[in-house]
């Protein structure tokens, strides 16, 4: 089966400092990543802040222009599309954002918010659109009597449901969920995760699920890609990554997650030192300054992907 979404050598660099300064430096937000998502599959993209996962999401959605690399959607190169052809692609892929308070226009009613995509793409008559909004609201666990209310009248979890309804409006094939539950309380988080899972199953959605929380990602994903400082360090089947992580970064990420089980203690000591700045990326393997396994070679030479077990790992020492 050919992938629904494929990205090749995707790069996003930002110049930092003054345009007129002599030492203008480059912030390497995303530094050459390849990914493929197959229809009906969920790809989990996990990493800490500044690893480039949200930048990747925005490039896939064509909200940011990549510095280099290609994005293929259903076999079509969408990297440089614009105008009507970009609009046609937008109908087929949608995004759900993290912050349920910033992602809904406070001056629009729920009905307007959810029917906006339909109106933009001129789908159905006004009456049909309204019926579709009611259907969508019900589908995400809200009610048609919520349709004429404003976002501030809802709680965080409810707002995230509205966001999801909006994303589903044009029946897209791909949903990019950028930290969709990170801003929610645990009990509400579980409601929204369950909803996303149900929707994916019932609507046969393809999903990219982005999160800093590996335990959430492993729960929702078929495949997991772990990012560190703009690069993918390990990618493979979800259960393989969660239970038999190979890359030293993935392992320390896993052991750093506080497990809600007092009988289990941390398997490895936490990583020492801080995340390097994406302006000053370490030479060779970018994880080497924090890596317990680092050798001289890691300082010099960036590792290539190799198959280890069921996953691909970019590390010299595994």
């Amino acid at each position: 089966m050919s992938p629904l979404l494929e990205i090749r050598g995707l790069v996003k660099h930002y110049p930092v400092g003054s345009r007129f300064s002599a030492q203008r430096r480059i912030l390497r937000a995303v530094d050459g990543i390849d990914l493929a998502v197959h229809p009906g599959e969920t790809l989990g993209l996990v990493g800490e802040s500044g690893c480039g996962k949200s930048t990747t999401a925005r490039m896939i959605m064509r909200l940011l222009d990549p510095t280099a690399g290609r994005i293929l959607f259903d076999g079509q190169d969408i990297t440089r599309l614009s105008g009507a052809r970009l609009k046609a692609v937008r109908r087929r892929m949608q995004i759900v954002f993290q912050d349920p308070f910033a992602s809904l226009n406070p001056r629009k009613t729920v009905e307007r918010i959810v029917s906006d995509p339909l109106e933009i793409h001129r789908i159905g008559t006004a009456a049909e659109r309204q019926a579709r909004v009611y259907e969508l609201l019900q589908r995400v666990g809200l009610d048609r009597r919520h349709a004429d209310r404003y976002p501030h009248e809802f709680s965080g979890g409810q707002r995230q449901r509205i966001s999801i309804a909006r994303a589903l409006a044009c029946a897209p094939q791909l949903i990019v969920a950028d930290e969709p539950v990170s801003a929610l309380d645990v009990s509400i988080q579980a409601q929204v995760i369950n909803l996303l899972q149900d929707l994916q199953r019932d609507l046969d959605l393809t999903m990219i699920f982005i999160s800093h929380d590996l335990s959430v990602v492993q729960y929702v994903s078929d495949t997991i890609a772990v990012m560190y400082l703009g690069k993918i360090v390990e990618v493979g089947p979800s259960q393989a990554i969660y239970h038999e992580a190979q890359h030293p970064y993935t392992r320390s990420l896993l052991s750093a997650i506080p497990v809600p089980d007092p009988t289990r203690r941390r398997s490895a000591p936490p990583l020492e030192s801080e995340l390097p700045s994406p302006i000053n990326i370490p030479s060779g393997c970018r994880f080497h300054p924090r890596c317990p396994l680092a050798t001289e070679r890691c300082r010099r030479e960036a590792p290539e992907f190799r198959m280890v077990g069921a996953q691909q790992v970019a590390c010299h020492n595994i």
Binding site: R58, M61, R62, L63, L86, K87, R90, R91, M93, Q94, I95, F97, Q98, D99, A102, S103, L104, N105, D116, P117, I120, H121, S163, R166, A169, C170
Partner: peptide
Amino acid sequence: EYIDAARAAG
């Protein structure tokens, strides 16, 4: 983000 959401919707 609702501006991005509008752009993403086309």
